[in-house]
Each structure stands twice: as structure tokens, then as C-alpha cells.
Computed example of a mutant assay.
Amino acid sequence: MLNQEQFIITLTNTGEQAIALVHNKLFDLIIINTVLPDMDGLDIYKIIKRIDLYQYIPIIFVSNTNDYQLKLACLEYGADDFFHQSHQQ
């Protein structure tokens, strides 16, 4: 749904890269995968939400797994939404 013609999109491959970016730039929306090579998505969320500028910026989670407990945990911590990313084509 998001394309670069309408939005400026910045992608990272690791949680450390994402955290470094939010310290240097203000984003209007953050989408976090629940599983990254170096960190858990929920841990990244907690770090970002400790930054004053990001207290009211929406953060959405996406996950390849349909883990209800993970979804519940993300929403309980205050995530704005959670989507299960299906691999069906």
C-alpha cells in the first residue's frame, strides 16, 4: 500500500539501524517487524517510545507468525495496530 511516489520510505535491516535513525530523524509513522536479526520488535518499540519526540508517533507491528500472545503483548504496550503478514500469493 505504501509506495515511494506518495511517501518517503526509509527501510532498515536491523533494530540497531532503526534506533539510530529515530535518534537522527523524526518519522510520521513507524512500522516494525516483530522479528529482526538482532533484536525483538517489541524491544525496539520500548526503546523508541522512551524518546520524547516519539511519544505520540504511531507505531504499527507486522509479523510473519500468527501469534496471538505476541499480538496481545504489542497492543498492551501501546502499539497502534498489529498486522499478520501472510505469505499467500
Rank of each mutant, 00 (worst) to 15 (best):
M1F: 11
M1P: 13
L2C: 00
N3C: 11
Q4L: 03
Q4S: 14
E5A: 07
Q6K: 15
Q6C: 04
Q6D: 09
F7W: 06
F7S: 03
F7T: 00
I8R: 07
I9H: 00
T10F: 01
T12N: 05
N13M: 01
N13P: 04
N13C: 01
N13L: 10
N13V: 00
T14W: 11
G15W: 13
E16Y: 12
E16F: 14
Q17E: 15
Q17F: 09
A18W: 05
I19E: 10
I19Y: 12
A20F: 06
A20W: 07
V22H: 12
V22F: 12
V22D: 13
V22W: 14
H23Q: 13
N24E: 15
N24K: 15
K25W: 02
K25N: 03
K25Q: 12
L26W: 07
L26I: 11
F27Y: 15
F27E: 02
F27P: 04
D28H: 13
D28I: 02
D28Y: 04
L29S: 06
L29G: 06
L29R: 06
I30C: 05
I30D: 03
I30Y: 05
I31P: 02
I31E: 11
I31F: 09
I31C: 04
I32K: 01
I32M: 07
I32E: 03
N33Y: 12
N33D: 15
V35F: 13
V35P: 00
L36I: 06
L36N: 00
D38L: 02
M39C: 07
M39Q: 12
D40C: 06
D40V: 08
G41D: 11
L42Y: 06
D43W: 04
D43F: 02
I44W: 10
Y45V: 01
Y45M: 03
I47H: 06
I47T: 14
I48R: 07
K49M: 05
I51E: 15
I51A: 01
D52Y: 13
D52R: 10
D52Q: 15
Y54P: 01
Y54F: 09
Y56E: 12
Y56F: 15
I57K: 09
I59G: 02
I59T: 13
I59C: 09
I59D: 03
I60L: 11
F61E: 09
S63V: 05
S63P: 07
N64G: 14
N64A: 11
N64V: 00
N66E: 10
N66F: 14
N66T: 02
D67E: 11
Y68S: 00
Y68V: 09
Q69K: 13
Q69V: 10
Q69L: 12
L70C: 11
K71I: 01
K71T: 00
C74E: 08
L75F: 06
L75G: 09
E76M: 08
E76S: 13
G78K: 06
A79Y: 07
D80F: 11
D80C: 08
D80Q: 13
D80A: 04
D81C: 08
D81Y: 09
F82S: 07
F82R: 02
F82M: 01
F83I: 15
F83E: 01
F83W: 05
Q85I: 12
Q85D: 08
Q85G: 03
S86N: 14
S86K: 15
H87W: 10
Q88W: 00
Q88A: 04
Q88T: 00
Q89I: 07
Q89D: 14
Q89E: 07
